[in-house]
Design a protein around this nucleic acid. Structure first.
Length: 861
RNA sequence: GCCCCCUUGGCGAAAUUGGUAUACGCAGCAGACUUAAAAUCUGUAGGUCGAAAGACCGUGCCGGUUCAAGUCCGGCAGGGGGCACCA
């Protein structure tokens, strides 16, 4: 029995079944009065078909904290669901003639059973998919509530339009300016679309980041940059001989100190004035068409060559109406930011300078480096706001030396005092365009009536259900082509009207699912009591790729839902952890085809390391280490790993070695190493369990007890901080020690059993099946999954004496062992007696002795 | 283009957040057990010099602050990620 190898497959299935039978992971929707709650949530998966190693890592990480908190006595909510709407289902429908719905639910079914084989401590009774009617019905209610609260509105905005497929394309469907399926030149089109008023919350969303002390600093920084708060100057240029209604051109700048060096003004191609001028100017019409052919992404716009067209109009400087500047339409001006119009100060902005040189415009230096006569050539002089420069033509006072910020402040004051403009705060954050011209999404519950206009659907008519009899044969949105679905009575006047055929962005679905999990069967979007009790999510875990949009939209939704009375929570996620990716080497055949890891054999190592095809023996090129992806075929199927080594091995491996927020490189050797550890624990447990009674020696017993409690103290620190790789290292050290001492009879069997039981409890959150089996083998009561976490005995952490490193001039030269509570003077006295210190001093008095209690001693000679 | 992150032995990494650099693991090497292999166990291991004791060097590169820098500051290089309709 003791020599049997641990059979992960059968053991894991056994315990998974037992956990399920006993319902130990089910949570009360409204927990008992005083039990502390803990909500741990991993970002729910898109049901693409199979789980991948990234999922394994994500859910293993969340499961550790869920199991740990449960053992610590918390009522833990740990749910799972599916982010199930989205484009891939429609692509599959077009390619494989399946229906998005059946494709999605089939994927969910197979991924659910894969996740179950991981042994996650999930409350499956709360599972839902966002494409479930019961979920999106509630989302439609939210949408109507948001309409009532004026949190959503319609406006025009641009989309990528494929003129051949007659469809709107996502940015990722535009490849080098062409539609991915049709290959047609993509153009920009304006559509009237639904928007959430997230920008009204810019200041709140920015300011509240300060309170999120359990979020990674980098995510907060990314969000702050995204919100993009800036303080600047708003003012009006006059437009000479302007078309009616365009006599005044509002402009916003964050560098008002450059207001004395502009040489042109420019407006966006979509600026109302540009549209007006198009009517009378063929050149403008042509230029606007050219801009429409440009991509819509920020990258496309920034990287495109800077182009413009002179409108022939002149604008007048607010400080001096006699100062006239040419007005251009330029492709680098964004209609969405500020007023869609800029002043160009070429001397102090590289983009403006490039533009000025291209169109032979003047360059006026406003300031120069202090003491420099040099004027701007082809490189703009762009100092930071805090840099000190010499102003040569600023507010008419040449030679003023000060920081740019001071000049900005003075300019703002002066402009305001003279009535030329006002200080203004702007945000880059734009309203959230939530309309999608697609089938597989949540229908927007509104009706277009010729008489009443845009009318919200009546609540009693919800949900607006997606029709299932749709065809993907015809290009475009299937909802538009459906013979009857659009036809509906106007909710207001009852006359025949048409349904909105846009569906919601899938980010809407994922912006409130965390709230729905607190009571997924509620007939209203949330059960307010349950939501307030459980939210905010205590620990949210997911990929860094969601650092901005998903998290920002969810933060907006929490606010919007609170306004609409669905909960009373501003911030949805109290703690956030962003995990790294699972990456793997890539392999290519000599023909340039990507090969899967299982298709190749590795030969040799180090510089000698090479690969060949497992079957044909052909040489294989070893490529870079990249994110596991279908296209590079560098994936490892979790199913294969679980079948071969068991879920515990897979879980242990993804938690070991790499810090959770960094990428982990999947290697075969690493997995085997993890599996060896599983077997080692199993052998050790048997050897401890079958050991004869023995009293051991007091000092050895105490030493082992101390080690166990010291390890416990560290694990208690590391698990809540998700420092799993460090926790794993601590466990290895303790296991090494137990292995050593159990060979001799210096340690009592009782003490060994105690240390072993504690070790199993510490391993349990990471390798729960192995832990249960070991728990049983040690004849311990119940299941480890329902056993309270071991109590830490603080007295075991106290050491009587301590070893301090001793440095001479900052270099370690020896160490001393002193009583724990010895004071600084006592340490100094002992140090000075050490012969290596005396040698270094050679009779002199040290200049200084630095004693950091409990840490280090440094003698400065 | 803009923004962000990362860089420590052969490899993944640790370092109590300014205090003994390389814990723990992987791969390696040597040995034990074995007819043999696997599995397992023991030992070894940053570099250079040295028989050894030990000395010097060492956290991508250059400079700074400090008694003390992997950690803080300034500059540079290399690698990776995001950029609003992928989720």
């Amino acid at each position: 029995m003791a020599s049997e190898r641990y059979n992960a497959r059968s053991v894991e299935q056994k315990w998974q079944q037992r956990w399920e039978e006993e319902n130990i992971f089910q949570t009360n929707t409204v927990p008992d009065g005083d039990k502390e709650t803990y909500y741990v949530l991993e970002m729910f998966p898109y049901p693409s078909g199979r789980i991948h190693m990234g999922h394994v890592r994500n859910y293993a990480m969340g499961d550790v904290i869920a199991r740990y908190k449960r053992a610590k006595g918390f009522e833990v909510l740990h749910p799972m669901g599916w982010d199930a709407f989205g484009m891939p289902a429609e692509n599959a429908a077009m390619q494989n003639k399946t229906h998005p719905k059946s494709w999605t639910y089939q994927n969910i079914a197979s991924m659910r059973s894969q996740l179950k084989s991981m042994g996650l401590s999930l409350d499956w009774s709360r599972e839902f998919a966002t494409c479930d009617e019961s979920y999106y019905a509630q989302q439609q209610k939210l949408f109507l509530d948001f309409m009532k609260a004026d949190l959503v509105y319609r406006k025009n905005s641009k989309v990528n339009w494929d003129p051949v497929d007659m469809t709107v394309l996502a940015n990722e469907q535009v490849i080098e300016g062409k539609g991915w399926r049709s290959g047609a030149e993509v153009e920009q089109r304006e559509l009237t679309q639904w928007f959430f008023r997230i920008s009204d919350f810019s200041e709140d969303l920015l300011e509240s980041l300060n309170g999120l002390d359990q979020w990674p600093a980098k995510v907060k920084l990314m969000q702050a940059n995204w919100i993009g708060k800036s303080k600047g100057l708003a003012f009006d240029f006059g437009v000479k001989d302007a078309p009616a209604g365009f006599e005044v051109l509002p402009i916003y700048t964050t560098r008002p100190d450059t207001m004395f060096g502009p040489t042109f003004a420019a407006i966006a191609a979509d600026h109302p004035l540009a549209k007006e001028l198009e009517k009378t100017s063929e050149g403008v019409a042509e230029f606007r068409k050219q801009c429409a052919a440009m991509g819509t992404s920020a990258e496309d716009i920034e990287k495109a060559p800077k182009l413009g067209i002179d409108t022939g109009l002149k604008v007048t400087h607010p400080a001096d109406p006699a100062w006239e500047l040419p007005l251009y339409i330029a492709n680098f001006v964004l209609m969405d930011y500020g007023t869609g119009a800029v002043i160009g100060c070429p001397a102090h902005d590289q983009r403006d300078l490039d533009f000025a040189r291209k169109y032979s415009l003047d360059v006026i230096d406003v300031f120069v480096p202090v003491g420099s006569d040099e004027r701007v050539g082809n490189t703009a002089f762009v100092p930071a706001k805090t840099d000190t420069v010499e102003y040569v033509c600023w507010l008419g006072e040449a030679g003023t030396i000060q920081t740019c910020q001071e000049a900005i402040d003075t300019t703002l004051e002066t402009f305001e005092a003279k009535g030329w403009g006002q200080p203004k705060t702007e945000y880059k954050l734009r309203d959230w365009g939530a309309s999608r011209q697609r089938y597989w999404g949540c229908p927007i519950p509104v009706v277009h009536c010729e008489t009443c206009g845009v009318v919200p659907e009546r609540e009693e008519n919800l949900p607006v259900v997606l029709p299932e009899d749709v065809s993907f044969e015809v290009p475009g949105n299937p909802l538009d082509h459906h013979p009857t679905w659009r036809n509906v009575a106007c909710p207001s006047c009852g006359k025949p009207a048409k349904r909105e055929t846009d569906t919601m962005d899938t980010f809407v679905d994922s912006s409130w699912y965390f709230a729905r999990f607190t009571d997924p069967k509620s007939p209203t979007p949330t059960n307010v009591t349950a939501a307030n009790r459980w939210l905010p999510v205590d620990q949210y875990i997911g990929g860094i790729e969601h650092a901005i949009l998903h998290l920002l939209y969810s933060r907006f939704f929490a606010r919007a839902m609170s306004i609409a009375g669905h909960m009373d929570i501003q911030e949805p996620f109290k703690g956030l952890f962003t995990q790294g990716m699972v990456v793997h080497e890539t392999y290519k055949s000599s023909d340039g085809d990507w090969l899967q890891p299982i298709e190749i054999d590795i030969i040799g190592e180090g510089a000698e390391r090479s690969a060949r095809h497992a079957v044909t023996g052909d040489p294989v090129v070893i490529g870079g280490i990249e994110k596991m992806s279908k296209s590079k075929r560098n994936t490892v199927d979790p199913d294969d790993i679980i079948a071969t080594f068991g879920a515990d091995t897979a879980r242990w491996f993804v938690l070991s070695d790499s810090p959770p927020d960094r990428d982990v490189i999947w290697t075969e050797a690493g997995v085997e190493g993890a599996h060896r550890f599983v077997q080692r624990i199993w052998r050790l447990v048997h050897s401890v369990a079958t050991r004869p009674e023995n009293a051991g020696r007091d000092d050895a017993n105490l030493k082992l007890s101390k080690s166990a409690h010291k390890t416990l103290a560290r694990i208690d620190e590391m698990i809540p901080g998700l420092r799993y790789n460090s926790a794993v290292a601590q466990i290895y050290s303790l296991v090494n020690e137990i292995e050593q001492v159990q060979k001799s009879d210096t340690v009592a069997t009782d003490t060994l059993n105690m240390a072993m039981a504690m070790t199993i409890q510490m391993i349990a959150p990471m390798m729960p099946h192995l832990a249960e089996e070991c728990w049983k083998a040690l004849n311990l009561e119940g299941m480890v999954s329902t056993t309270a976490w071991p109590e830490l005995d603080e007295s075991m952490l106290v050491e009587e004496s301590i070893t301090l490193p001793v440095q001479i001039n900052g270099k370690k030269r020896g160490e001393i062992t002193v009583p724990q509570e010895l004071d600084k003077q006592g340490v100094e006295d002992i140090v000075l007696l050490e012969h290596f210190v005396q040698n270094a001093l050679s009779g002199k008095t040290p200049k200084k002795i630095v004693v950091v209690p409990g840490r280090i001693v440094n003698v400065v000679v």
